[in-house]
Deep mutational scan, measured.
Amino acid sequence: DAPDEFRDPLMDTLMTDPVRLPSGTIMDRSIILRHLLNSPTDPFNRQTLTESMLEPVPELKEQIQAWMR
């Protein structure tokens, strides 16, 4: 099983494109984008959230890719 820090906190699946929300939570980009289609909010604190506020986490993405090899 993947380490917890590699798993999306909402869907508990392996992240492939991790992004940091303004709240500091790291999620998979595809999952948070799907959530934003229904509700333009951070799913953990209900603060306003837009796609432009998502910050890529390239170092975590590299760690996940290395773990998958």
Rank of each mutant, 00 (worst) to 15 (best):
D1F: 14
D1Y: 14
A2F: 15
A2S: 09
A2V: 15
A2E: 07
P3F: 05
P3L: 05
P3A: 04
P3W: 05
D4N: 14
D4G: 14
E5H: 15
F6T: 02
F6P: 09
F6S: 02
F6C: 06
R7M: 11
R7F: 13
R7T: 06
R7K: 13
R7G: 02
D8F: 04
D8Q: 01
D8G: 03
P9Q: 06
P9G: 08
P9S: 07
P9F: 07
P9N: 05
L10T: 08
L10K: 05
L10D: 02
L10Q: 05
L10I: 11
M11K: 09
M11F: 12
M11R: 08
D12A: 12
D12I: 07
D12P: 03
D12Y: 14
T13K: 07
T13G: 06
T13L: 08
T13E: 08
L14P: 06
L14E: 02
L14M: 09
L14N: 03
L14I: 15
L14W: 05
L14G: 01
M15N: 02
M15H: 00
M15G: 03
M15I: 08
T16S: 12
T16F: 11
T16R: 12
T16N: 10
T16Y: 11
T16V: 13
D17G: 02
D17Q: 04
D17W: 06
D17I: 05
D17R: 03
P18R: 01
P18N: 01
P18H: 03
P18V: 04
P18E: 00
V19Y: 06
V19W: 06
V19A: 01
R20K: 10
R20N: 01
R20V: 06
R20Q: 06
R20L: 07
L21W: 04
L21I: 04
L21T: 04
L21N: 00
L21V: 02
P22R: 01
P22M: 02
P22Y: 05
P22L: 04
P22E: 01
S23A: 05
S23N: 07
G24M: 05
G24W: 03
G24F: 04
G24P: 01
T25N: 11
T25A: 13
T25L: 13
T25E: 09
I26M: 04
I26W: 03
I26R: 04
I26S: 01
M27Q: 01
M27L: 07
M27I: 06
M27H: 05
D28V: 04
D28N: 04
D28R: 00
D28H: 02
R29A: 07
R29E: 04
R29D: 01
S30G: 11
S30W: 13
I31S: 12
I31C: 09
I31Q: 06
I32M: 01
I32Y: 02
I32L: 06
I32V: 09
I32D: 01
L33S: 07
L33I: 12
L33M: 13
R34Y: 11
R34I: 11
R34N: 13
H35P: 00
L36N: 00
L36T: 01
L36A: 00
L36W: 04
L37I: 11
L37T: 12
N38S: 14
N38M: 13
N38V: 14
N38F: 14
N38W: 12
N38A: 12
N38E: 13
S39P: 01
S39Q: 09
S39W: 08
P40Q: 14
P40W: 08
P40D: 11
P40I: 07
T41Y: 13
T41E: 08
T41S: 09
T41W: 15
D42G: 00
D42I: 04
D42H: 03
D42K: 00
P43L: 03
P43G: 02
P43C: 06
F44Q: 04
F44I: 06
F44L: 05
F44W: 12
F44K: 02
N45S: 14
N45G: 09
N45P: 01
N45E: 07
R46L: 14
R46C: 15
R46A: 14
R46G: 15
R46E: 12
Q47K: 10
Q47I: 09
Q47T: 15
Q47Y: 08
Q47F: 08
T48L: 15
T48G: 11
T48Y: 15
T48I: 12
T48W: 15
L49G: 00
L49K: 00
T50N: 13
T50R: 09
E51H: 09
E51P: 14
E51R: 08
E51W: 13
S52C: 10
S52R: 10
S52L: 10
S52N: 12
M53Y: 05
M53I: 04
M53D: 12
M53P: 02
M53W: 06
L54M: 05
L54T: 01
L54G: 00
E55M: 13
E55N: 08
E55L: 10
P56N: 09
P56R: 08
P56D: 13
P56A: 11
V57I: 10
V57Y: 08
V57Q: 09
P58Q: 10
P58N: 10
P58T: 10
E59D: 12
E59N: 09
E59G: 11
E59P: 06
L60A: 01
L60N: 00
L60E: 00
K61N: 06
K61G: 06
E62H: 11
E62R: 13
Q63H: 08
Q63S: 10
I64V: 07
Q65P: 04
Q65A: 13
Q65R: 12
Q65M: 14
Q65T: 11
Q65L: 15
Q65V: 12
A66F: 10
A66Q: 13
A66E: 14
A66M: 15
W67D: 02
W67V: 03
W67N: 03
W67F: 09
W67T: 02
M68T: 09
M68Y: 11
M68G: 06
M68P: 03
R69E: 14
R69V: 12
R69K: 14
R69F: 11
R69D: 13
R69H: 13
